[in-house]
Design a protein around this nucleic acid. Structure first.
Lengths: 217, 217, 217, 217
DNA sequence: ACTTAACCGAGACGGTACGTCGCGTCTTTTT
DNA sequence: AAAAAGACGCGACGTACCGTCTCGGTTAAGT
């Protein structure tokens, strides 16, 4: 966060109302979720929706980029520890986080809006990629690599491709806005089952190996 | 479609310059492809980019919805005839159209922009679905059903699910804007091969059958 | 009139509709009389009011100045001959023309509009002065001078001042739009009577003689 | 009167710059005096001339009528007290105010413009009449009536007619724009002298008595 | 308790963009 | 060739919104 000063040095004078920060971020998520675009929103509109004065917004964030960055971090959730009994468990747990995020309307709409305007907010998009996407993909790859070490996963697969296949059907739903058809409990595990059955060490499947892809989770 | 008049009855007075229509639609595609949003664009900006006067835009389309609908139809391409030697050929051909569309930067950015603002343009999004998405999905389903009749495709599969699996990896790239990594020649066939090998009539694969999903191609 | 060609040489092709000229001039007078200003009117508005196409106006008059000049001449009326039995008769007759003109709403409103925008239409205002005002003032001065010769009018008066006093009360009503209170029959004669009684050769009245004024009728 | 608030209750927020009000009114007077029409002027043009933003004009006056009303009051001057030694003094003093107003180019041009478009600004014209013209005429009538009581003025005259005769020659100059020929010092007193000599209690003059007229000063 | 510095809301301000409207010109068909 | 219809570029208008600035009133830390 832009203003997060770890040193809690209280400045003299009246203190900022801590509820305003929350109200403003909530306002952004609500309006984005209601169909607004990142560039379409203005700090004025946000202030009106949040029920605070314009000054209170401008005082906290100088630009929309700064504000949106805080919004992104507000919807970020920590990754689960990879301590499952099997690689399949770990993968399913990670995939569950993705499904969970997709099912959170406000979070998924925010990400969709960001994807749609990646060119208009390049630094924001880059930081979003570095701070949210990359760690998650790394975790997924780690889980698969451990599976290879333990023998649960075939050694000659393209790890990136498998990650891709795992999350694509879920992410595609974000783009089209049809997330309601996802079963929060089962979807993750079903996909995991399918992909593991498909890429597992049993038969001759997946002989066709694509070159590695650099993609996001 | 404002100007689709099959009857070539010349109205009195000066005729509209047909090049302006084209220039305006091109301008929309260019600007959307450059990162603009549907709601962020204004007819004024479009006119400036197209090199025509505002009047000429307002005269042709009363609202942005009307204009965008014509833009959508401009990027639409006819579906290929399903007269391939095998069901696999037909599916690969259809999938090739999807890849082709995704590789057309301007078309894919336009669709991404539309997805991002589906709520802000509800009627536009609905008509886009009805007139572009639905026919393509119907064609894909038809191709698969013919495959079932001919024995190429297993009879107990969920057709909608297979369609979904076929196109998801491609469409996911639209959302994230990473379409450059798709091989225009091979991608469609490779995915087809994989899914056919997976859902073909040979072994016990794909025992896990999800309930049907209502999804777009 | 700008286009009046006395030679009636028929040009080839379709002939101009003579009713259009009249309709256009009437339209101008109507709209000015309804409160419009000279600069506020446009050839488009005039054409609409006259019920003709824009081209028909532009074809006849290139600029508004040209059109307004024809309008002014359309409302001009010839001066009566100064052949009355006495100077008083002649003056009363001339003053009657002024009252008559003032009572013609369309004419008086046109002149009022022209006065109000004298600076915006300098050449038009000048020609109006030369062709309409000056001859009338000259006629009035002539009538008074003849009165001096015949002994009806005192010789030491300021002719311009007397003209001024004669017409001022009438013209003031044009400016304020309160012309309805003028009696078309009597007003001219009453004022003449009063001024003649006042400036006649009888007593010591009007000893105060102002310097000559250059003023319009 | 948008801003005549005798109670100096400070509204919350930033206060309006009082110089802008003055600058805008000055701009109107300048442009009207330069030949513009009331309807021809736009708040945009006025703002540009005044050197303020359009917002600042629209914030103060919702319509042109509102603005023009304030302009009229800005050029209004208080009437002198009727405490002269004689009725003649009082009348001359009042007439001096009229001459003074006429000699103020900006004020007289403003009134001329208003007269020219009385129909286009009916309520404005009415309020101008009620708030500016009527009080002045009432004062003039009062001065004459006092003269009748004191014996300075004949009792059988038509007061409205005398008022009319007093001011007409001056007002007529407003309509034609030829105010430069008025002597600011002498004109008022000369006219007063003349009319008093004519309507005084001495001889047989002004035997012709018109019916009362309802007219403005 | 008093100072004081920052927060907060309200609103004025300049600037910019929008959609509309009207203008005068140009183009096409019809008379 | 006139006339009518209408497309076209241009520009002005009134509105709305944005981000900044100004200004009382409020609040809480620090003397």
């Amino acid at each position: 966060m832009a203003q997060t000063s770890d040193a809690p040095e209280r400045r003299p004078g009246r203190q900022r109302d801590p509820r305003s920060n929350q109200a403003i971020i909530e306002a952004v998520l609500d309006m984005i979720s209601a169909g607004a675009t990142l560039s379409g929103l203005s700090l004025v509109t946000i202030a009106r929706e949040a029920g605070v004065s314009r000054n209170s917004v401008y005082r906290r964030w100088k630009t929309k980029d700064d504000l949106y960055l805080d919004v992104l971090q507000a919807i970020n959730r920590p990754l689960p520890a990879l301590n499952g009994a099997s690689a399949k468990d770990n993968v399913a747990k990670l995939l569950g986080v993705v499904v969970e995020r997709v099912l959170d309307k406000r979070a998924s709409n925010m990400l969709r809006a960001l994807d749609a305007e990646a060119q208009a907010f390049p630094t924001l998009h880059r930081r979003y990629f570095e701070e949210i996407v990359a760690p998650r993909r790394a975790a997924m790859n780690l889980a698969l690599r451990r599976g290879i070490e333990s023998g649960e996963v075939r050694a000659n697969i393209d790890i990136d491709l498998v990650s891709d296949v795992l999350v694509s059907p879920v992410l595609a739903r974000v783009a089209s806005g049809l997330t309601s058809q996802l079963d929060p409990e089962q979807t993750g595990r079903r996909i995991t089952e399918l992909v593991f059955t498909g890429c597992g060490n049993i038969g001759q499947r997946l002989d066709i190996v694509d070159e590695p892809t650099d993609w996001k989770v």
